[in-house]
Design a protein around this nucleic acid. Structure first.
Lengths: 353, 353
DNA sequence: CTGAAAGCGCTAACAA
DNA sequence: TTGTTAGCGCTTTCAG
C-alpha cells in the first residue's frame, strides 16, 4: 500500500541501502541485535519496516543448512489416533523450533514413497513414518538422502530404522486375556484391512497360541465407525453367537457398540466389547469402553525428540518400547453372571430409525 | 556405506566433476533431461547415484523463489472436523505439487500469531487460518509479508482476508428451526467456549430473534466428548427439563447422547438431540445423529485451490460461501408424539459401570 | 548439445 | 561497532 511499490520484494541489500549501512549490519540486527549500536539498529529497523522486508527462508536455509521442518507420513487423519500422534509431535517439535509437514498415505506404499520423496524435495530435515512395511523406493530414498527417519506405532529393535512404538501383538493379547479371564471362550475378532497394515497383522498374530484357547471368528472391515457397525451386524447374524467382541481398534469398537445398541443387544450384559487404542473419547462412550491403552501422545513426543536429536547430534537414536496397558471400564463383564437376562432388549428394539 | 566417504553431502559440483561435465549439464539432466545427449545423461546419472546425491531444496528454492509448501493454522487436531479439513486440503494441495505444514493454536491468538510467524520464517508460500478473529501481530505479519492467506470456517465477504466458509449463524438457525418445527419450545443449547471462538459466537447469535421464540437455556463446556457428557448431566439436573438439546458441534452432541443413555434417558423419545458439523461418524451413532452438514471437505479443497491459485497468479481469490444443510436422522422427533412414555428408562439405568 | 559465468538472498570470516 | 567479501548449491542466460 506504499506509493508505487517496485513490484519485487525487498532484499537485504535494499534494506542496507535504504538504511545507509552494509548488508552485514542488517544481518546482525536480525541475528545478534546486541552487537549493533542502538542508533544504527533503529535506522535499520525502520528501513525494514518501510520496505516491508521479510527475510527469505530459502536464502537463510542455504547458509545455515537447516530448513527447520520435518515430515510425518501417516495413513490418514480421519482416525483420531493419528491426529493425536501428530498433535503431540507438532507441539513437541515446536520446543525444538521445528515445524511439522503432514502427508497422508492412505496405507498405500506407493503413495507413501512418493510423498516421502516430496518431503525430501522440499527440504525436510527428518521424517516420521508409521509402521515397518514400506516400498523399496522408500528405503532407497532414505538411504540416499541419509535422512533421519524414525518409525512409529511399532516396536522392533531389529528393524533397519529406529522404532518408537509399542508391542502390537502383546496389546492384542492383553485384550484377549482380559476376555478369557472373564470366562469368554467364543469371541468375535473385528479388525481393519490386514493386507495393507502391518500393525493390524501384528495384533492378529498376538492372538495366536493363547491359553486357554478361545474359539475365535474373524471379521475384517474398513477401519471406520461404519466398518464397526457393519461388523456388529455381521456378528449378530452368525450361527454361533460369541459372548464377546474383541476389536483391534477403538473406532471399530465404537461402531460395534453403536450397532449392538441399535439392534437392541445390551453391552456388557449380552455381549462384552473390548477395544484397543484408548482414544480420548473412548472413556465417555456408552457404555464406557474397556480397552488397551496405547501411549500415542507419549509416542508422538518421543518421536519428535528422537528426530530432533538425530538432526542435531547426528547420532541415531535408540529404539524405544512404550508400554500399553489394559483399562477396564464398563463394556466388558464376566460371562454367565448376568447372562440369560436379555436386559432391555425388547424395550430397545424400537429405537432408532 | 561407500569407502571412506568424505563426511559432507555431495553437491552439484561434485557430481559434475565426477561425471566429467559442467554443473550446467548436471542441472539440465534434472530439469530438462531431453536436452542432454543420452550418453552424457547416463554418465551424469551414474555419478549422481554413486555419490548418493540429493538436490538441496534450499538452493533450489532460492533460485525458483518457491518452497512448495503452505501452512495451515487450526485450533486443534483432536476435533475430527479440523482433521477432515486438513486431510482434504492436503490431498488437494498435492495436485498442485504443494505440501502442507500444520500448526495448532489451541484457540489462542497469541500462539496463533507466533506459529504464523514460524511458518513465514520457514518459507510458507501461503497460509490457511480458521476464523476471522486474530491478534494484531498476525495481521501485521500478513501485511508485511504479503503472504497469500485465506480464512476458513467462516464466510464474510467484507473481511480483510478472503473467506472460504459457511454461514455459521444460519447453520445454527437451521438446527433450531428443525427443533421448533417438531414442536420443541424448551431447548437446551450446548456449546464450547465462546470467548475464544468466533464460530461459536456466530452460531449462538444465529439463535437470536427466532420465531417462534423458544425458551433457550445455555450450557457452555469444553469442546470435547467429555464436555458433552458434562452438559448432558447438567441438563438433567436443571429445574425445567427441556424437550430437546441443540448442540453447536457434533462432538458435543455425541457426548450428550452418551450421557443421556448412561442416565437412562431415551433419545429421541424423551429428548431430541441435534448436532452441527456432521462428522463422518455422526451418521453411525446410536441413535443416528440429526445434524446440520457443514461441507468441510469441500472447504478444505476450495481453500487449497484458492491458495494455490493466489500463489501462482498473484490474484486474490474471491470469498466463497458453501452451503450447509439439515440432515435429519434418528435423534430428533416430534414432541408429544411419543412423549410421556419413558421407554426403556428403567431397563437401562443399571447399565454401565 | 555443452560449458562458463553471473547471480539468487543471506551468513560469516576477516578487516578496519 | 561496522564494512568488505567470499561463498552456500543451484539455475539460467549466453556463448561456443
Amino acid at each position: 500500500m506504499q506509493r508505487n511499490t517496485p513490484r519485487k520484494r525487498a532484499n537485504l541489500r535494499d534494506v542496507a541501502a535504504s538504511a545507509g549501512v552494509s548488508v552485514a549490519t542488517v544481518s546482525r540486527v536480525m541475528n545478534a541485535p546486541e552487537t549493533v549500536a542502538k542508533a544504527t539498529r533503529k535506522k535499520v529497523e525502520e528501513a525494514m519496516n518501510s520496505l516491508h522486508w521479510v527475510p527469505s527462508a530459502a536464502a537463510r536455509a542455504i547458509n545455515s543448512g537447516r530448513t527447520r521442518f520435518v515430515g510425518a507420513l501417516v495413513p490418514t487423519l480421519d482416525n483420531a489416533i493419528f491426529a493425536r500422534v501428530l498433535a503431540s509431535m507438532e507441539s513437541r517439535l515446536a520446543t525444538h523450533r521445528l515445524s511439522l509437514v503432514v502427508a497422508t498415505t492412505d496405507n498405500d506404499p506407493v503413495q507413501e514413497a512418493e510423498k516421502a520423496k516430496g518431503l525430501v524435495d522440499i527440504g525436510a530435515e527428518g521424517l516420521m513414518i508409521s509402521g515397518v512395511t514400506h516400498a523399496p523406493e522408500f528405503y532407497s530414498l532414505i538411504e540416499r538422502s541419509q535422512l533421519p527417519t524414525v518409525s512409529t506405532s511399532f516396536y522392533d529393535p531389529g528393524y533397519r530404522l529406529p522404532t518408537i512404538g509399542y508391542d502390537n501383538a502383546a496389546a492384542a493379547r492383553t485384550a484377549l486375556t482380559h476376555l478369557t479371564d472373564l470366562g469368554h471362550r467364543r469371541i468375535a475378532v473385528v479388525h481393519g484391512p490386514s493386507a495393507s497394515n502391518d500393525r493390524t497383522r501384528a495384533r492378529i498374530s498376538g492372538l495366536e497360541g493363547h491359553s486357554p484357547k478361545p474359539d475365535l471368528s474373524f471379521f475384517e472391515v474398513q477401519l471406520s465407525i461404519a466398518g464397526g457397525c457393519e461388523a456388529g451386524l455381521a456378528i449378530l447374524q452368525a450361527a454361533d453367537q460369541p459372548s464377546a467382541v474383541l476389536c483391534l481398534s477403538d473406532v471399530l469398537a465404537s461402531g460395534v457398540l453403536f450397532e449392538l445398541q441399535r439392534q437392541g443387544v445390551s453391552v456388557p450384559h449380552e455381549k462384552s466389547v473390548i477395544g484397543l487404542d484408548d482414544l480420548v473419547g473412548s472413556a465417555h462412550l456408552f457404555p464406557e469402553l474397556t480397552t488397551v491403552h496405547l501411549p500415542v501422545s507419549r509416542m508422538g513426543a518421543a518421536a519428535a525428540d528422537a528426530i530432533a536429536s538425530w538432526v542435531e547430534t547426528q547420532k541415531i537414536p535408540e529404539p524405544s518400547l512404550l508400554n500399553s496397558d489394559l483399562v477396564v471400564r464398563a463394556s466388558t463383564a464376566r460371562t454367565g453372571t448376568i447372562g440369560g437376562h436379555p436386559v432391555a432388549r425388547r424395550a430397545r428394539t424400537d429405537f432408532g430409525k
